[in-house]
């Protein structure tokens, strides 16, 4: 999926970013980028997805949050932010209302913290759960007393 031309121009002129699939954006500009894309007609939120990357020699322990938005019918843009574990990324709920549940789910499962989220509670797992199951270091068969 190629990035449309107007988005490439927008990225280069306003943000000084290279286009790509996905676009990598810094944490302090992600809300601005989301707003700019929404103004450019990308009003459809496809998904918010996070993935966990354990610490390597070059990088610290971190997660990536990828947002994918769409301008109907076909244009699609994905942009991602890198969030070191223990730090947070600003939420996109003010821009896309749908980020509410999506970011909650990713917080619950992957553990990415979205700063300023109105209701950052667990959504899939019980409230008293410990750990975030989709992190790479989380054992799949973690016991949870008393039901398993």
């Amino acid at each position: 999926m190629t990035v449309p031309d107007d988005v490439t121009r927008l990225l280069a002129e306003r943000f000084g970013l290279e286009s790509g699939d996905p676009i990598t954006v810094s944490r302090d500009r992600v809300v601005e980028l989301g707003g700019a894309l929404k103004e450019a007609g990308f009003t459809y939120l496809v998904y918010v997805a996070c993935a966990h990357y354990p610490a390597t020699d070059a990088e610290p322990d971190r997660t990536v949050a990828e947002y994918r938005v769409r301008r109907l019918p076909v244009d699609e843009v994905a942009f991602r932010v890198w969030v070191p574990t223990g730090e947070s990324t600003p939420t996109l709920v003010p821009v896309f209302a749908g980020c509410d549940w999506q970011e909650r789910e990713q917080f619950d499962l992957v553990g990415t913290i979205f700063a300023g989220h109105p209701d950052l509670r667990r959504i899939m797992l019980p409230e008293d759960w410990e750990g975030h199951p989709l992190r790479r270091d989380y054992d799949i068969a973690t016991r949870h007393h008393p039901w398993r």
């Binding site: 899939m124 797992l125 199951p133 989380y138 054992d139 799949i140 068969a141 973690t142 949870h144 008393p146 039901w147 398993r148």
Partner: peptide
């Protein structure tokens, strides 16, 4: 059954 959130059989409770 190995998944963290699934009860391995209802006869456990």
């Amino acid at each position: 059954r190995d998944i963290y959130s699934v009860v391995p059989g209802v006869d456990t409770f």
